[in-house]
């Protein structure tokens, strides 16, 4: 694999298996910049990864390799690039990014899907599972990554983050703006961060940059177009 560019960082990533190699094709980079960071994997590094993170014996090597590169890239971004990878679904509308976050299985992808039904080609999926956010010149920017979730939605695109919304399942739809204090505990656990002091400090600096610069919401919702209409109008301030 030649050079690739993820989150505006040029990497040299050398996978062993086709699975991750194919995921990378969208992020290939042909420009002049030299890679800042090189990682390659082979069966030894894959087995190490399996042991270190107690991954199941029957998890196929290509999937472990995928996790290995995800961790390596996230670590690098956290260490050097004022950002991290987190669990969420990010969608672009009107030049800005709108992000849904929730515990696994709450329906982030489903809700983003409702936005697509509602807004058609006025929106673009940035990433449906694990985008990267970086603070660039004091402003949060979200990037598509090769880790696009089970429906493989997203692309090699970026947009400034405008609002982040936490989803909570409920019978009746309602949305409200929430404070950083309210938002933090659930968001914290959705972000990739590690235990060493330096990168933890970086992570807190990143959180400060992100949460100071965007509007935060909580949407209680069912799975309906009405829920998407509600989040769309509140988060974008636009009418449908």
């Amino acid at each position: 694999m030649p050079k690739c560019k993820i989150a505006d960082v040029v990497f040299d990533l050398e996978p062993e298996y086709a699975y991750f190699n194919e995921r990378l094709t969208e992020f290939l980079y042909v420009g002049e910049e030299t890679p800042e960071y090189s990682v390659f994997s082979d069966d030894v590094s894959i087995e190490k990864e399996r042991k270190k993170y107690s991954l199941p014996e029957n998890l196929p090597a290509p999937l472990i390799e995928d996790l290995f590169f995800e961790r390596k890239v996230s670590d690098y971004i956290l260490e050097k690039k004022n950002g991290t990878l987190f669990h969420g679904s990010a969608i672009e509308y009107g030049g800005g990014a709108y992000v849904f976050t929730a515990r696994s299985g709450t329906g982030k992808s489903t809700h983003a899907g409702l936005w697509r039904e509602l807004l058609g080609d006025r929106v673009k999926m940035i990433n449906d599972d694990k985008p990267i956010v970086r603070i660039i010149d004091g402003k949060p920017v979200i990037y598509g990554t090769p880790w696009k979730g089970k429906h493989g939605l997203g692309g090699n695109i970026k947009a400034p983050v405008k609002a982040i919304c936490r989803l909570v399942q409920a019978k009746e739809n309602s949305i409200r703006e929430v404070s950083v204090k309210e938002f933090l505990p659930t968001f914290f656990v959705q972000c990739y961060h590690v235990e060493d002091r330096k990168r933890k400090e970086n992570f807190l600096e990143f959180l400060d940059g992100l949460l100071s610069g965007v509007k935060l919401f909580e949407l209680k919702c069912d799975i309906s177009k009405a829920a998407a209409e509600l989040s769309f109008t509140a988060m974008t301030g636009d009418k449908l």
Partner: peptide, 27 residues
């Protein structure tokens, strides 16, 4: 433990070995 101001509120997190006992955050 580390403390830092994050967007107008204060966060405490654990680092290194301490993070194995305490993986969360205190506001």
């Amino acid at each position: 433990y580390l403390i830092r101001e994050v967007a107008g509120t204060y966060l405490v997190v654990a680092v290194g070995k301490r993070a194995k006992e305490f993986g969360g955050m205190i506001n």
